[in-house]
C-alpha cells in the first residue's frame, strides 16, 4: 500500500500514459488516435514536472526572503519545448487526417483498409 501511496504522482502519470497508449492501439478512428497520442504526451509532461518538484519547494520564481527552497526549474523548461513539439505533431497529424478524409471520405482505419482491399493492391 505504501508502495502505491509513496509514489502516487508516478502512478497518476503512468495511468495517463497508459490511457493514451490504449487509445493509440485500440481506436480505429484516426482523429481519436491522434488525440490519444496527445494524452500520452501529456502524461509525460506531468511526469517531468513531478520529478522536478523539490519537497517544500516553491515555484521557481524568485521569492522574497532568505533560504527559500525552489523546485527544479529545468524540467519545466524542457517541457515547454516538449509542448511545442507535441502541438506540432498534432498539427501535422490532423492535417494528414484531413487529407485522408478528403481522399477516402472517411477517417476510420478499418474503412480505409476495406476500400484499399476492394481496389486490390
Amino acid at each position: 500500500m505504501d508502495f502505491i501511496l509513496d509514489y502516487y504522482n508516478y502512478w497518476a502519470c503512468i495511468l495517463i500514459m497508459l490511457i493514451g497508449l490504449y487509445g493509440v492501439m485500440a481506436k480505429s478512428n484516426l482523429v481519436k488516435k491522434i488525440l490519444a497520442l496527445g494524452i500520452f504526451q501529456t502524461g509525460i509532461l506531468v511526469f517531468y514536472i513531478s520529478i522536478g518538484k523539490v519537497e517544500g519547494g516553491t515555484g521557481p520564481v524568485r521569492a522574497a526572503g532568505e533560504n527559500v527552497v525552489y523546485s527544479n526549474p529545468l524540467p519545466h523548461a524542457l517541457m515547454l519545448t516538449a509542448i511545442v513539439v507535441g502541438v506540432a505533431t498534432m498539427a501535422v497529424g490532423l492535417a494528414i487526417v484531413i487529407n485522408i478524409r478528403q481522399t477516402y471520405g472517411t477517417a476510420d482505419e478499418l474503412d480505409i483498409e476495406a476500400i484499399e482491399h476492394e481496389r486490390g493492391d
Binding site: 491522434i34 497520442l37 500520452f40 509525460i44 505533431t89 497529424g93 494528414i96
Partner: peptide, 21 residues
Amino acid sequence: ALTSAINYLLLGTMGACFYLV
C-alpha cells in the same frame, strides 16, 4: 502515402515519447 504517413507518425511519435520517458 497518406495512410503510410499517419501510421509512421503514430509509431514514430510513440518511439520518440518512449525515448523521452
